[in-house]
């Protein structure tokens, strides 16, 4: 496998962590109470920590003298390979939790496979991240239940988020050409094989939360090809502001 393909594969995994971490970072200091604020920030920290490990490895593999920050901050929108789900805005707490839950369940399944990767670095990153992401999944599942089976208002709000974000779940199981190359070499995870378990787990929690799965036949996709939603440009404008305004400096 050429380094360039492996780098692309790594970005496909890591960009999700970066963008979701960035979204969660927006909430720091604005949570519904201190405990939740701290927990959401914790998850942002975990995700950004994972991002750094992946990007440092990708930078190492690159022929050009790159750093983790070049990868994080200096690509154009079309080069980010995260799924549409993670870039969706923090419309309200119901969306934050639903987005997190939909991603966490996938993320944990992915890492459980990635730890068996033939690539030692990826395997090591996955092993470390599993502990963090198991907590994320517990946190978001618990909140799905609280909101779904809490008050009438919270039920309605979280159901609204589930209805809106459901259409982004299918993309989690798409594979790019770089993914296929990595899968064939035993380096990457074949996400298609995770799909059944994913929807089963999601279904169980939603059922316990008294929430219903929307009947949607048309799903959104594009993130993995770098075709993002209109939200993404604003997120990147924020993320890249310093690096774009003051290029080639050390911080």
């Amino acid at each position: 496998m050429k380094n360039e393909n492996l780098i692309q594969y790594i970005c496909g995994v890591a960009d999700n962590a970066l963008i979701l971490g960035q979204r969660l970072s927006e909430l720091c200091g604005h949570g519904p109470n201190l405990e939740t604020d701290i927990a959401l920030t914790n998850m942002a920290l975990d995700l950004l920590g994972q991002t750094r490990s992946y990007y440092q490895y990708a930078a190492q593999l690159s022929d050009e003298d790159k750093t983790e920050d070049d990868i994080a901050f200096l690509r154009v929108e079309r080069q980010y390979k995260n799924v549409l789900l993670v870039e969706q805005p923090n419309t309200h707490f119901g969306y934050v939790i639903t987005r997190q839950f939909f991603y966490d369940v996938f993320h944990l399944l992915l890492l459980q496979e990635l730890q068996n990767s033939k690539d030692e670095t990826l395997s090591a990153i996955a092993k470390k991240a599993i502990k963090e992401v198991s907590y994320h999944q517990r946190f978001s599942s618990d909140w799905i239940k609280r909101l779904g089976d809490g008050t009438e208002e919270s039920h309605q709000k979280v159901q609204e988020a589930v209805n809106d974000l459901w259409k982004f779940t299918d993309e989690l199981f798409h594979t790019t050409e770089d993914d296929t190359l990595a899968i064939d070499l035993g380096v990457g995870v074949n996400v298609v094989t995770l799909k059944e378990k994913y929807y089963q787990r999601i279904g169980e929690v939603l059922e316990e939360a008294t929430l219903t799965i929307p009947e949607i036949k048309w799903f959104q996709k594009g993130g993995k090809q770098g075709v993002h939603s209109e939200h993404m440009g604003y997120l990147l404008a924020d993320l890249q502001y310093m690096q774009r305004t003051y290029p080639n400096m050390k911080w």
């Binding site: 970072s25 720091c28 200091g29 920030t41 920290l45 950004l48 750094r52 690096q243 003051y246």
Partner: peptide, 22 residues
């Protein structure tokens, strides 16, 4: 936080603001 100039600074700032919540 969302505009921190590097990943290292972003993580450090997030952790700092979280400490304040603590």
């Amino acid at each position: 936080i969302t505009r921190a100039p590097s990943l290292r600074r972003k993580v450090a700032l997030l952790a700092k603001v979280q400490d304040e919540a603590g």
